[in-house]
């Protein structure tokens, strides 16, 4: 029997209405005017795209986890106490880039217009122009990962702002470690890695004069349920996701909440105690220090030992002539 096309949302809606109770296949089929076989197919497709649906021959289907970002859930989870990060959350279905949206908003606010409060978070289901460093693309299919940007106005001189990038890596790595057994580590300065594959990236953009920054937009992308097919060939071998690492789909909502909670904690520490505790925690979570690394800076390639970071968080690279070079930016590849 031919079935009319049924939308994901229709099935999910039905399952969600019943909360954690089972809904029989017959009931779903009846409500949507399709065959039970079509429902079964749809359920399987939903499972593949990250929904956790329990199936029982006798009782039917039960939704136990929604991969779709539940903004309600994030708001509720964060509303318990006064906070900076996530005090306001703006959700978008698909945007060009959450960083772009956040920068526009922060720019308006800093020039005296109607804008936003500090800690405002922009979350999107997908991005069409997700950005990485130096114009590189960040793979951002809808319905799969966490893409968010946080606006902060720490009022520090720009020289101190770079620590924000290490701080964000610390917050993200801590959050992921709390929720999963995946051994995530930080590659200098702020890549989230599982061994030599990239799980997440952080891109921070600031507006500043010589004395102080007017705002910083911290963009976070974490691959939650990204699958091999979602990634273009050139990044397949260098990217990973929590689903890939754990073998099962993970809740984007839970990770978003945990990351925002850790950001609140670490931003508070940074503002109160300065960069020292941030750098110390970064050192506990990094997998770069002590390794032989290649650093590419523009057209220049340097090989050396990643010996330590300095007080600003910059990489101190011990070269073969035993000199110590300070690296403020560059692409690091860990060799051994």
């Amino acid at each position: 029997m031919m079935s009319p096309k049924i939308k994901n949302e229709a099935v999910v809606d039905l399952l969600q209405k019943k909360k954690s109770a089972f809904v029989s296949g017959t009931e779903i089929a009846g409500a949507l005017g399709v065959s039970r076989a079509a429902v079964w197919k749809k359920i399987n497709r939903l499972k593949k795209s990250g929904y956790t649906i329990e199936a029982s021959r006798a009782k039917g289907y039960r939704l136990t986890e929604v991969p779709g970002l539940s903004i309600e859930e994030i708001r509720n989870a964060l509303s318990g106490r006064p906070r900076i990060i996530g005090g306001e959350i703006i959700f978008y279905d698909t945007v060009s880039s959450t960083n772009t949206i956040a920068a526009e908003l922060a720019g308006k606010a800093s020039s005296g217009g109607e804008g936003c409060t500090e800690g405002t978070v922009i979350i999107a289901d997908g991005q069409t122009g997700g950005r990485g460093r130096r114009g590189r693309a960040w793979v951002s299919p809808p319905g799969k990962n966490v893409y968010m940007s946080i606006i902060v106005t720490p009022g520090v001189p720009p020289v101190q702002a770079a620590v924000l990038t290490l701080m964000t890596a610390v917050a993200c790595a801590s959050a992921i470690r709390r929720l999963s057994p995946v051994p995530v580590s930080i590659k200098w300065p702020n890549d989230l890695m599982v061994s030599d594959r990239k799980l997440g990236g952080i891109l921070t953009e600031i507006k500043a004069d010589m004395d102080r920054i007017s705002y910083a937009v911290i963009g976070i992308g974490v691959n939650i349920n990204l699958e091999v097919d979602d990634a273009p060939d050139d990044i397949r071998s260098i990217a990973t996701s929590l689903k890939y690492e754990t073998g099962r789909p993970q809740s984007r909502t839970k990770y978003a909440i945990e990351i925002l909670d850790e950001m609140e904690k670490w931003y508070g520490i940074f503002m109160k105690e300065g960069k020292r505790p941030v750098l110390e925690e970064w050192l506990r979570l990094t997998s770069t220090i002590g390794k032989t690394v290649n650093v590419t800076i523009g057209d220049t390639l340097l090989t050396g030992t990643a010996e330590k970071i300095n007080d600003e968080g910059m990489l101190m690279l011990r070269l073969s002539d035993n000199s110590l070079k300070v690296i403020s930016s560059g692409d690091v590849t860990v060799l051994r």
Binding site: L164, T204, I206
Partner: peptide, 11 residues
């Protein structure tokens, strides 16, 4: 100006 993936647009 980039420092540690912090991009600073100079205007």
């Amino acid at each position: 100006i980039e420092a540690m993936k912090l991009m600073n647009e100079i205007e």
